Amino acid sequence: MSRWKAPRPKSSPYITPAGYQRLEHELKDLWLKRKGVVSALSAAAAEGDRSENAEYIYRKKELRGIDGRIHFLQKRMSSLNIISAMPADQERIFFSAWVLLENDKEEEVLYRIVGADEFEMDKRYISLDSPLAQALLKKTFDDHVLIRNEFQETRYTVIDIQYGAEFIAD
């Protein structure tokens, strides 16, 4: 049994302005946190034998994690396309749309289609790469979407489509 893992599929390079600002803020915070970790690491290193120094070992591991995340963010942010313009046809579903759907049980659910780097910002956000978002793209009012997985099958009907920072209930 090998340890080789297939590379993750590339995610969409799109992001909203708010999502990009959050990544910039995270990167800035990581650089500040890194300064503190480096000074704690050098203090722990000055205490003597590093092989049995738990503080030193912990700080090295913490620094490795911070450096890895900084490297990832710097590389990822340079490849992102910030999408701030509204689509010409706002009757159809595209990136950054708020979509109000009705499911099989006649329950309404609200989602916003965002980039893969920002869907965890809000429970209502779904990644552009998700099966539901892919099925919704270019749909319009009263269109139906069927989502299947190995456990269930769900049918949605598009009730409302809006663009903007927040969804405004009618």
Rank of each mutant, 00 (worst) to 15 (best):
I57N: 07
I82F: 10
F72M: 13
Q74K: 15
H144I: 05
G68V: 00
H144E: 15
I93W: 05
A169Y: 15
A133Y: 03
A116V: 11
A40K: 08
G68Y: 01
E153A: 12
D170E: 15
K35H: 03
I82T: 10
I147R: 04
T16P: 08
Y20D: 09
Y111C: 02
E24P: 00
E102N: 01
I66S: 05
I57F: 03
E108T: 13
V109C: 08
D142S: 13
I70P: 04
P9R: 12
E26C: 02
K33H: 12
D104H: 01
A6H: 12
K138M: 10
Y56L: 09
F167H: 15
D142Y: 06
S11I: 06
E62R: 11
E106L: 06
G115C: 11
Y20W: 06
R124C: 05
T140E: 05
V145E: 09
Y20E: 08
N53F: 03
L128D: 11
W4G: 14
G164D: 10
D67V: 05
F72C: 00
Y156D: 01
R148T: 13
E108L: 12
K75E: 11
L27F: 04
F151Y: 12
R64K: 13
H25C: 00
I66M: 02
W31F: 12
S79C: 02
M1C: 00
P13Y: 04
I70T: 03
V145L: 07
F151E: 14
R148H: 11
L41K: 10
L30N: 03
K33V: 03
W4R: 09
E26S: 07
E55S: 15
A133P: 05
V99K: 07
T157N: 06
Y56T: 08
I168M: 13
S2G: 15
T157I: 11
K28W: 03
A165E: 15
D160K: 14
I15M: 14
